[in-house]
Amino acid sequence: MSTQLSREQFYAQQPEITRSLVKLYEASTRKFDERLVCLVLLRSSQLNGCAFCLHMHDEHARRVGETPDRLAQLAAWHEARCFSERERAALAWTEALTQLAIQAPSEAQKAQLAEHFSVEEQVNLSALIVTINGWNRIAVGFSFTPGE
């Protein structure tokens, strides 16, 4: 008997969890440009080493018009000049919330976020980051296969 839980088994075992994560994603992304959403999803997935989510969100990013050049530079966004100040603030916040175990968000990161995002957007962006971190942990924990 296999102890490896498949993606389908995970979803079937507790469908309310899946629906809840999808609803949280939908609620948090309604007012954001899809390309910004994709950058956040991809950066968090890079940091968490989630190949399943990287594959899925890379395809999504390309479908909504993200360029291969920007996607290639995302892991080094600190040095890349192709990201706007708003995108940089979102990526910095993504890293801060994704890496809480290393260090809490700094006052400078909070100020940068507030400079480029309304209070409502800050809440929504944070909820989006919570959502992708949840999905990353599920996908990595149960070894979901990219392209499934």
Rank of each mutant, 00 (worst) to 15 (best):
E120W: 05
F32L: 09
E34C: 07
A75K: 04
V119G: 03
Q103D: 13
C53D: 05
E34S: 08
L91M: 04
Q14I: 09
D33G: 08
A75T: 14
E120F: 04
A104E: 13
Q46K: 05
V119P: 02
S84G: 12
H57T: 01
M1E: 11
R43G: 00
A111N: 14
V140H: 04
S20T: 15
A51V: 04
S28E: 01
P146H: 05
S126N: 07
A90T: 12
N48Q: 09
R137N: 09
F52L: 05
N136H: 05
V140D: 02
G141T: 04
T3V: 14
A139H: 15
G134W: 09
T3R: 11
R63D: 14
R63Y: 01
A92L: 13
L71W: 01
C82T: 12
K110C: 11
L128I: 07
L47K: 15
L91E: 01
L125M: 08
A139L: 09
E87M: 11
I129F: 12
V64K: 10
F10P: 00
S6L: 05
Q46I: 08
F52M: 08
T29S: 11
L39F: 15
R88Q: 13
L5E: 03
Q9C: 06
Q46G: 00
E107Y: 04
E87L: 02
E16S: 13
L24H: 09
T98W: 07
R86W: 11
E59S: 12
Y11T: 10
A139Q: 05
I102R: 14
T29N: 10
A27Q: 13
L24T: 10
L36S: 09
I138N: 09
S84H: 12
N133S: 12
S20Y: 12
S45K: 06
L97S: 06
P15V: 11
Q9R: 07
Q4A: 13
A96S: 15
C82A: 11
Q73S: 14
E8H: 14
I17W: 09
A51K: 00
L47M: 08
R43T: 00
Q99G: 05
R43V: 00
Q46W: 03
Y25M: 03
K23W: 02
G65R: 07
F32V: 06
E66H: 03
Q103R: 15
S28F: 09
R137W: 10
